[in-house]
Design a protein around this nucleic acid. Sequence first.
DNA 1: TTCTTAATTTGTAATCATTATAAATTAATT
DNA 2: AATTAATTTATAATGATTACAAATTAAGAA
Lengths: 145, 145
Amino acid sequence: MDPSREQAALLQRCNIRPTYPRIKVLAYLMTGRAHPTADEIYSSLVREIPSLSKMTVYNTLKLLAQAKLIRVVNIGDKELRYDAIMTKHGHFKCDSCGVICDFPVDSDAIAVEGLDGCTITEKDVLVRGLCPQCTGKQKERAGKN
Amino acid sequence: MDPSREQAALLQRCNIRPTYPRIKVLAYLMTGRAHPTADEIYSSLVREIPSLSKMTVYNTLKLLAQAKLIRVVNIGDKELRYDAIMTKHGHFKCDSCGVICDFPVDSDAIAVEGLDGCTITEKDVLVRGLCPQCTGKQKERAGKN
DNA sequence: TTCTTAATTTGTAATCATTATAAATTAATT
DNA sequence: AATTAATTTATAATGATTACAAATTAAGAA
């Protein structure tokens, strides 16, 4: 069959029954796709699984996030994005072209004085600005003025 | 009159015509209110300004944010929050009671290797977990089991 | 002041990601 | 095969935000 055994095993290990849609959603996220929205995941997978419902995608994403197999990325747009890369990293979003990219961040090194007594379960770093290409275009335009 | 002159002057300086609703929205945010939603701002101000429309609140918040008089805070909930404290700080949200608090963060000190060539306009640090009180309650409960 | 024009505010309707709900389907167990 | 529980599906509801156009207000000129 196809090599989704890895995903099935991961789900098993988290006590999530490895159904076909769940395996496919997890596999989709683990194979190079960076930060898709629920809708993008649905649209891609429905070609392969015509009966797929968007609710299943949402349910699955919630399960996977609870099991910490994936991460929910809130870039500040109205839709959430999902990410199977679980190593520590921050997210950069270009305000011009919309590209999102990861960058390494040692979140443990971020000092959070003033949160004494708090239990910290998650630390996110979000950066916005212009990607190198859009920065270049902007400079070009500025030069012409 | 009332001491909203400060807000009026701030708006003037940003080339935003200091209309009554705008002054009031800015004053609301600057007087101790931490991270209200657009709806909270509207609900409070409509008592004083019965003709106020929610659209005006949204429009004003957008203007103020563009002028960098306030900050848009996306804590990961579906509604946005707004903040007039413009010194560098991160946001902590308690996943149990929902309280949001600021903490100092030197965002310049956060290394963002891998973003060479990018123009960075904004850096946000978001922390989630349990506040001291909710941490206490959880420990108590764990002890009883 | 009065007229003219532009900016602002307002109310209503539309948008759209996500959630709620319950019926239909599938899988697991007896 | 029968029973039960879990999962998936379709449809409708929710709710923050935006779009839009009419109504109001303010600013500047005559």
